[in-house]
Design a protein around this nucleic acid. Sequence first.
RNA 1: GCCGAAGUGGCGGAACCGGUAGACGCAGCAGACUCAAAAUCUGCCGAUAGCAAUAUCGUGGGGGUUCGAGUCCCCCCUUCGGCACCA
Length: 904
Amino acid sequence: MPETYDPRTVETAAQKFWAATHAFEVKEDAARQKYYCLSMLPYPSGALHMGHVRNYTIGDVISRFQRMQGDNVLQPMGWDAFGLPAENAAIKRGIPPARWTRQNIEHMRGQLQAMGFAIDWSREFATCDPAYYVHEQRMFVRLFKQGMVYRKNSVVNWDPVDQTVLANEQVVDGRGWRSGAPVQKREIPQWFLKITVYAQELLDGLDRLPGWPDAVKIMQRNWLGRSEGLELRFDVEGGGSLEVFTTRPDTLMGVTYLAIAAEHPLALEAARHNPQLQKFVDACKQGGVSEAELETREKLGIDTGLFALHPVTGERIPIWIANFVLMGYGTGALMAVPAHDQRDWEFATKYDLPITMVVISDPVRDAIAELARDAADNTDAMSAALGQSKAIDVVEPSSAASILDEYAHRIIVDGPFCAHGTLVNSGAYDGMDYDQAFDALAERFAHEGRGRRKVNWRLRDWGISRQRYWGCPIPVVYCAKCGAVPVPEDQLPVKLPEDVAFSGVRSPLKSDPEWRRCQCPQCGGAAERETDTFDTFMESSWYYARYCSPGAATQIDARADYWLPVDQYIGGIEHAILHLLYFRFYHKLLRDAGLVHSDEPAANLLCQGMVIAETYFRAGANGEKTWINPADIDVTRDARGRVAGATLRAGGLPVSIGATEKMSKSKNNGVDPQLMIDRYGADTVRLFSMFAAPPDQSLEWSEAGVEGMARFLRRFWRDVAAHAAQPDHPPLDPATLKPAQKALRRQLHATIAKVGDDIGRRRAFNTAIASLMELLNALEKFTDVSDAGRALRHEVLESMVLLLNPFTPHASHALWQMLGHAETLIEDVAWPRADPAALVRDSVTLAVQVNGKLRGTLDAAPDAPRGALEAAARALPGVVAALGGKAVRKVIVVPGKIVNIVAG
RNA sequence: GCCGAAGUGGCGGAACCGGUAGACGCAGCAGACUCAAAAUCUGCCGAUAGCAAUAUCGUGGGGGUUCGAGUCCCCCCUUCGGCACCA
C-alpha cells in the first residue's frame, strides 16, 4: 500500500471489486432484518448535478451504515425517463427524445458508479421502457373499470400562435415562452383519477407517519384542505338557483352579494345578452391557469344585474362575476360576507358594496353584557372594549346599540373581523355562537331541503392527461358507437413510437393518422386512439414497488412484501406536496388491488436542501449580464480575509459578485461533479457534501471547503500508513491505561457513540464528520509509542476506518486492508460498539453564573452533592467579585451542568 | 396572494430536552521548514475598550416569559421552496 493517498487508484480498485463480487446485489432473506433505503429516482437530464450527488450520498451513507448494523439493505436506482426536457432537447438539437434520453442514462449511470454508491444495479429500469409502463397502463384499465377514472373538461394554457398547450413553466409573464403570445385559458376534455375518494385516508394517514418531517405533513394537510361547512341553495330572482359552499354559515345574515366564476353557467348565460359582461368574461380567459398567477392578479368583478334571494330574509342580493372565483373549486360560486372575510371586504370596499356586521368579538359582547347589568357605570367598559381613549357619552337606553354601531363602523373603515364570535343583527340567531348558529341553520335548511352539512376538500382530482408526445400513452380508444373504451389488457402495452420526427410543436401521436387508427375493442368498428399521454407523476408514483419485483409478469409480486414499506425515503423538499401525495395515493391503489399489504409507502422521509453556489457576472454595455462559472473565478480578499472582489482566472479581468443561489444553467453557477471527482476523488466529494451543512438545509458549494476535506483524508491516510509501518503491539489492556491514554480512549468511545447516533438517529452527518476530525486532531497530539500507546492508536485508527466507511467507502476499503484485514471485507464488518467502561468520567466541568452571567467554571465529581457544588461555586474568585457583598437570594444547581447564584 | 422553511464570527456551520454561544472546516494573520514557492507543521483568530488581568456588547429587528433564551411566546423584516402541466 502506498504511503500517500491517491484517490484515483484507490477508487477504481474498490469499484472494480464491488462490481466483480456483486457486493450490493441483494435477495429476500426472511431470516434477516431488511432495510429498504430509497432515493428519489433522477430525471436523466444529461449529466449528474450536485443535487444528485448530495441526494444519493445521503442515501448511500444510510445504506452502508445500516448494512454495518447487520441489515439486508436494498438500495436501488432507476430513471424517471419521460418528460418535457427530452422534447425540448429534440426541438433544440433535433435528437429524438428516446435517443437523447437513453444516451443520458448511459452517461449518468457511469457517473453514479464513479461515486461509489452501493446500488443494486440488477434492479435498474427506465420508466420509458414498455416493460415498465405496460403495468401502469394495465392498472389504469383496471381503475377505469372500477370507476376510479373519469373524463371531464378542464382548463389548460393555450398558446394561440404555436397552437399548442403549454406547461405552467412555459408561461412567462402571461406569455408563451417561445411565441411570446399572450396565453389563453382553454377547456379541453381530460382524464382524471379520483384521488379525492382517498382524501380522508390521506389526511388521517399523516398522523401515522412519525418518521416524516412535520413541515411536509403540515403542507400536505393544508393542501388536502378539509373543511366542514354548509352547502346552500340561493334562489335566483326570475327562476333558477345557485349553490354555494360556506364554512361560515354563522355569517349568513351578513351576506351582501354573491360572487360567481366567469365560467359559471349563470355567468355565461347572463353574458349572452350583455356585451359588457361578455367582454369581462372574455377578459377572464386571458392569462395562464396557475394558482400563483390567478391569486396575485388584481381582483376584478362586474355586476350581472341579477339578484339572488336571501334564504332567510328573502332580501334581494346582487350577483357579481369575480375573476378570483374558480370554477374548479367547490361550486364555482360563493356567498360574500365582507364584514367577516378579508377578500370579500376588499372586493366590497373596491366596488362600494354594503358591509353588514353580524358577528362580534367576546370583549365587545362582554362590554354589552356589562352595560345591561350596570347601566350607570359603563363608560370604562365601553372605552376598553373599543380601545379608544375617550369614553362615548351617549349611554342608555341605546348604549348597546351605539357600541354595535361604533364597532360596525370600525369594520367598514379598518377591515373585517374574521374570528368566531357571537351573532348580532341576525334576528332569531342573535346571541348564538359559531357552533349554535351552524347547527340551527344546518337543521333549518335540511328541513327546507335547501342545504346540507358538507365536508369540502381543497384537493381536486388528479388530472393525468398531458398533450405531449414523450410520455406513456393513455390506453383508451374512441369509438363513434361505444364512446371511450379502455384497451383490453391482452392488447397492452400501447407502445409509444420512438423512431419519429419531432419538431416540438405538435405531438407525433397527434400528427400521425396511422398510429391513431385502430379497431374498437368492443364492437370491432373503426376507432381512434387517445393521443394524450400520462402525467409523468404516474410513473414516479409506483417505481419504488417495482424495484422490489424485478422482472415480474405482474406489476408487483410477493417479493415486495419482504421489502415494503420503504424504510428511508430521501429526496428534495420541492416534492413535499405533489409527488409525495401521489406516491401515498398510488400505494393505496396498489393496496386495494391486493398488490401490496401496507397503508403507507415509506416509514421515514428525509428532505434534503438545495445545493447553492455564488454567482459571478460581467455586465455588458447594454446592461446584459454574462454569467461566469465559479470554476473560472479567483477571489481576492482584504487583510482580514473578507472577500474584496473577484477576477476571471484567465486574463484577470474583474467580475461582479452576484447572489448565492441554487445551482442553475441560467446563472451558470453549477459546479460539475465530474470535474470535482476528477480533481479530488469521489470520497472527498462525498465527504464535503455531507460535511458542509446538515442534510435538510441548503448546501453552499465551496472548492476551498472541498480542499479541506481532501487534506483531512490525506492526513488520515498518512497516519494509518505510518502506524502500519510500526512494529506489532500486544493486545490492548484497558484496565492498565495511564491518564493520557485513558483520555484518548474515552474520546474514541464517545466518538463511536456520537457518530452512530448522528448517522442513525439524528441524520446529522456534518457533526458526525466533525467529531471524527476532532478525534484525528487528538490522535495526532498523542505521540505515545509505548506498547500500550501503539495498541491504543491501532484501536483508534481501526475504529475510524469503520466509522468513516459510510462516507468514504473507497478509502476505508483500502485502509482496512492496510490495517491487516486481508481476510475480512469492510462492507460486512459490524459497526463498532462504544465501551461503557471507557466512557466513565472522573470529573465534569460546570459553568458557574451569577444572575445568569458566566463568572467561572468548576471541576467536580459527576455525583458531587449540591451543597458541595454550591460551596465550591461561592468560593470562586470571579463569583466573589461579582457578588460584591450582595445578598444571595437563591442558588440553582443543575448537576453536571451549571450553578447559578441569584443575588441582589 | 396562500402554504411551508430559514436567518448565529470574514464564510459554511455547531450548540440534540431552556443551562459555559461560536465545536469542526474554510479564509486570514504570525512563525517553523525551504535558495524560493508549493505542500506540511505550530500558534492566534466575534466586536468594542484596555499594556494586561478583565469589562461591556453580541445569534435578522422589536417586545415578552424565565434564576437563565440562539432555543419558548407575540409582532415585524429579509431570503428560499411549493402552489396541481418543470421534475
